[in-house]
């Protein structure tokens, strides 16, 4: 796949995360987790998001699933 395909794919992935996220649930979370979930929606960067949340990677992705944020790629 060429570079343009990947860039468009990343943008579509961001749109899917934004659309499917349960924003009411996210807004109810403690500040660190809330910020981390928002960062993850925008970037898809789960490892940095996990660090922001103070969680392990798999644990963070579990919390993202609870917030209805899918893994997309």
């Amino acid at each position: 796949m060429d570079r343009e395909f990947w860039m468009e794919l990343l943008e579509e992935a961001r749109e899917i995360r934004r659309r499917e996220a349960d924003w009411a649930y996210i807004d109810m979370q403690p500040p660190r987790l809330r910020a981390a979930l928002r960062y993850y929606v925008e970037t898809g960067d789960f490892r940095t998001a996990a660090r922001l949340a103070g969680l392990g990677v798999e644990e963070f992705l579990e919390r993202a699933r609870e917030a209805k944020i899918p893994l997309v790629l």
Binding site: F5, A13, L71, V72
Partner: peptide, 13 residues
């Protein structure tokens, strides 16, 4: 089963 979402661009491909 996984909650994964595939992008439409990929599925079209």
């Amino acid at each position: 089963e996984t909650g994964h979402r595939f992008a439409k661009r990929d599925l079209r491909r």
